[in-house]
Simulated assay, not measured.
Amino acid sequence: MDSVNRSSKPVMFTGSTVKVLMSGRQSGGQFCMLEFQSPPGRSTPMHSHDREEETIHLLTGVLEVTLGSETVLLNPGDTLLIPRHVAHRLCAQGEGSARYIVVCTPAGFDEFVEACASADSESAQTSVPSAADIARLRDQAPRFGITLLPSA
Rank of each mutant, 00 (worst) to 15 (best):
S123A: 09
V20Q: 10
Q125N: 01
L58C: 10
F36Y: 12
D133N: 09
H47E: 11
F109V: 02
M33Q: 13
S7R: 10
H49N: 11
R84F: 09
R42C: 12
M33V: 15
L58E: 08
K9W: 09
D120I: 00
F13H: 11
A98F: 05
R136Q: 05
A119W: 09
R51K: 12
T147C: 00
R51I: 10
S127A: 13
R51W: 07
L34Q: 13
Q93I: 07
V18D: 07
S38E: 04
D2E: 09
S43W: 07
L59M: 08
S130T: 15
E70K: 13
T14M: 12
N75T: 15
G28F: 05
P142S: 00
P142Y: 03
S27R: 05
P106K: 01
F144I: 07
L149M: 08
P76C: 09
L59G: 03
Y100N: 02
A119T: 14
F112S: 06
D133W: 02
M46R: 15
Y100K: 02
T79D: 03
Y100C: 02
I146S: 09
F112A: 04
R25S: 10
S38R: 01
T60C: 08
S151F: 05
R138I: 11
D110A: 04
Y100S: 01
A87S: 13
A152L: 11
A135I: 02
G94I: 05
N5C: 12
E35G: 03
I134N: 03
V4T: 13
A131R: 12
A98W: 03
R6T: 06
T71E: 15
S3N: 13
S43K: 10
T79F: 02
A132F: 05
R143N: 12
P76W: 12
L67N: 05
S121M: 01
V102Q: 00
F36L: 07
H85D: 15
M1T: 08
T79R: 08
T14W: 10
G94V: 07
V86L: 15
A135S: 14
L59T: 06
A119N: 11
L73Q: 13
S151I: 06
D110E: 01
P83C: 00
C32P: 00
S8F: 07
V4G: 01
T14N: 07
H57W: 13
D120E: 15
R138A: 14
N75C: 13
H49F: 14
A119Y: 12
I134L: 14
S27P: 03
L80W: 06
T126H: 01
S123Y: 01
G29L: 07
L67G: 08
H47Y: 09
P83Q: 00
V20F: 00
V20H: 09
L137S: 05
G96H: 12
C104P: 00
T14P: 00
G77I: 03
S7W: 02
G15A: 04
D50H: 15
A135P: 06
P45W: 06
P45M: 08
T14V: 11
S151N: 09
T14Y: 07
R136A: 10
L81D: 07
S130G: 08
I82H: 00
